[in-house]
Design a binder for these strands. Structure first.
Lengths: 145, 145
DNA sequence: ACTAATGTCTCTAGCAACTATAGCTTCAAG
DNA sequence: CTTGAAGCTATAGTTGCTAGAGACATTAGT
């Protein structure tokens, strides 16, 4: 059995994050030692590693909650899990497209800055006037940030 | 002079967001009508459009705050504005690289799903075992999301 | 056995950048 | 003149944590 600190170290998750996951019901309530400290089994570690890995891949905690409950029912079809992964892939692809457009616009902006005074600065000017842009990147930043 | 609703419509910003920007000091306190409603000049509209555009490009409100204060001082060097834009470009490029790695991993995962039962599902399996991954995408999702 | 240094506990509050709700007042159109 | 839309304030919620305070537990060194 591992203490919360060891568990966190071995899964690469910070201690408060583990407690947070327990609080929101993503991890089951841990056993406690005689001194009221949390103790974790290997199974708990695997579950945490799963969460960690899915977070690394950009899945939301809600999606992970669904994936976990699916992984607890090995006999069901994996269509649902596949759908979640496909949705995540689509999300990532959409962000990629948006970010690529942003990158082009930012590059244009930065390249045009001749290093003079603010009043001549293309960075400021472009920000103030969307029509100076080459691509249509409206409503993009919020999705990307 | 525009009401807050007209201003929002013309700049593509929701009304509560405008009030929020005022609250955090990104927009100056608006004039008020006799009935205590906010009224905006064209100048305010330009400022809001600037903010909107910078948000679209992914700048944080803090960066925008800096850019706005720079744009109010037309005689200074634009080095600072350029630096902010360059930093944003670097951030976008870094996110692009991470997202590209994520996309590859997700594609691999989804492609391997043969559509059977959960217990055979590669999606679930890969999530549970990082060593099945081809790329090193650790600590990536959090930055991208 | 004692002490000091960690580690852990609970609880609360904070971060970005909004969004939503409630309950009220004001304005514009018919 | 009335009604419905738009505006007002204030508060709380969202996501996924992170930071802090103050108290108890455990472990390492002497």
């Amino acid at each position: 059995m591992l203490t919360i600190g060891k568990l966190g170290a071995s899964a690469g998750v910070k201690v408060p994050t583990i407690r947070y996951y327990e609080q929101i019901g993503l991890l089951p309530e841990a056993e406690r030692s005689s001194g009221n400290q949390r103790l974790y089994s290997r199974k708990a570690m695997e579950r945490l590693a799963f969460i960690r890995h899915a977070r690394d891949l950009g899945f939301t905690l809600e999606a992970i909650r669904d994936l976990l409950s699916l992984s607890d029912k090995p006999d069901q079809s994996c269509a649902a899990a596949d759908a979640i992964a496909q949705a995540q892939l689509a999300e990532v692809e959409s962000r990629l497209a948006r970010l690529t457009a942003l990158k082009a616009e930012l590059q244009r902006m930065v390249l045009q800055c001749a290093g003079g005074k603010i009043c001549d600065c293309r960075v400021i000017e472009v920000l103030g006037d969307h029509s100076l842009c080459s691509t249509d990147h409206r409503h993009v930043g919020e999705v990307v940030a």
